[in-house]
Nucleic acid binder design. Sequence first.
DNA 1: TTGTGTAGTTTCGTATACAAACTATCGTGT
DNA 2: ACACGATAGTTTGTATACGAAACTACACAA
Lengths: 242, 242
Amino acid sequence: MQPADSEDAAPRQRVQDEIRRDIIFGALPPGTRVTEAALAAKYGISRVPVREALRMLEAEGFVESKPYAGSTVSKIPVDDAEDLFFVREALESATARRAAHRAAAQFDSGAPSVEWWQARKVLAAVLDEGDAAVAQNRLDLLPELNIRFHLGVAELSGSASLTALLRQIAGKIEWLYATDVDRRGKESWSEHRSILAAIDSGNSANAEQLMADHVHQSKVGYLDRFSVDKNSALSPEPTFAP
Amino acid sequence: MQPADSEDAAPRQRVQDEIRRDIIFGALPPGTRVTEAALAAKYGISRVPVREALRMLEAEGFVESKPYAGSTVSKIPVDDAEDLFFVREALESATARRAAHRAAAQFDSGAPSVEWWQARKVLAAVLDEGDAAVAQNRLDLLPELNIRFHLGVAELSGSASLTALLRQIAGKIEWLYATDVDRRGKESWSEHRSILAAIDSGNSANAEQLMADHVHQSKVGYLDRFSVDKNSALSPEPTFAP
DNA sequence: TTGTGTAGTTTCGTATACAAACTATCGTGT
DNA sequence: ACACGATAGTTTGTATACGAAACTACACAA
């Protein structure tokens, strides 16, 4: 029963999450210079934990640091988005496939394992929370819920490594998602339920395809919005043609 | 003309690289408890930069930290290796394809760009260095050269994002590679030249295939060596059957 | 305009101190 | 003998202060 959110956690973890949120939701626009002293003052802590938080965010790709020159918020990876979506498609297709495979195995072997059932329950709750958020037009809640869904599927896949890899790019996924949530948020969210249904049914091929399409649609929507014109030359996956 | 290696760089960067090396090459076996005080004493610096280095290594997945309980070297991702190779296959197939595509574009448009030529020259040097290392049986040099080759291909692809993503898992790739270098190192290295040749020729399909096979062979070799018996249940890619 | 020098700012590292939380050891009770 | 809990020791997490090092920006001269 961990807090899951940052409430009274350790200062370093807290400010790290806060800064990341500020970056993701635009309070700290790309290119902004962030100084240790200012952050320390803002969050009422000393500079040491701020430095460590910045090192973590640097490794996550949210800020860029030059020795003795300080840190700046990374540029939104607009032109890199295509690559990110490409990797994500490969990664998440795999998690969906394995999750479906594992779900079938769980039901075949009589009693589902405790941790599987736990993860499955969490996923159901996330889905309900998201539906409620959509119903109340609280689209600002979707970015985090979206990440929790996709990480939940990864958990369900049983692969610690796939989960870890997805977690590594989860922040940037959320970042991109937040910039596009008012356009494709509702539609995108509704696709989650059918993905989970396919996983539950144990149809791994179907789950994989649905997840691939889901990510692909996010990609198309994003690239369309920011009108990146290079999608004709290098599109890596002609998953389906009209 | 940056140092490229850690010689008189900033202490934090230096110890970060040192600790990572010690982990990769087995001086710090998985499960080892690393205390800040000990590291600070060993490298002759204070605790603050040590802590920052540990935070970076934590984000890279080399150490795991629990609040107030310290850091331990992560377990070798033997059981996760399969997933890592899977992602790598997707990632590096893409870099090879794009690198070939870009190479063709460079030659088509008369004069190659300066940075492309630079990257291409570095890659040639790495290849020669590796051949020399193989000739002198200095297999211990191969892990780093291997990473430099693959990152070099990513550079050549021109995609900053693919490069960044590959860099994120580069450390773990090197870790796995180092455990297997005496078995498959020479054979694996010889494949690099043909990959680069395919890229140079501009044959993107061929380059992609060769890279995919190259990574796939690494995967098979690794899983075979450590005789992971679960490859029957969850093998993600039945690429070819005997 | 271009180059250079200087002042100011910020990061980086050190040292010290103390509170908080974990780990391991040792006893006690059943 | 074994499980359980208190306790001491260790380690981390944070605060604070200070100095050195390096980058940035601005002014000035050729």
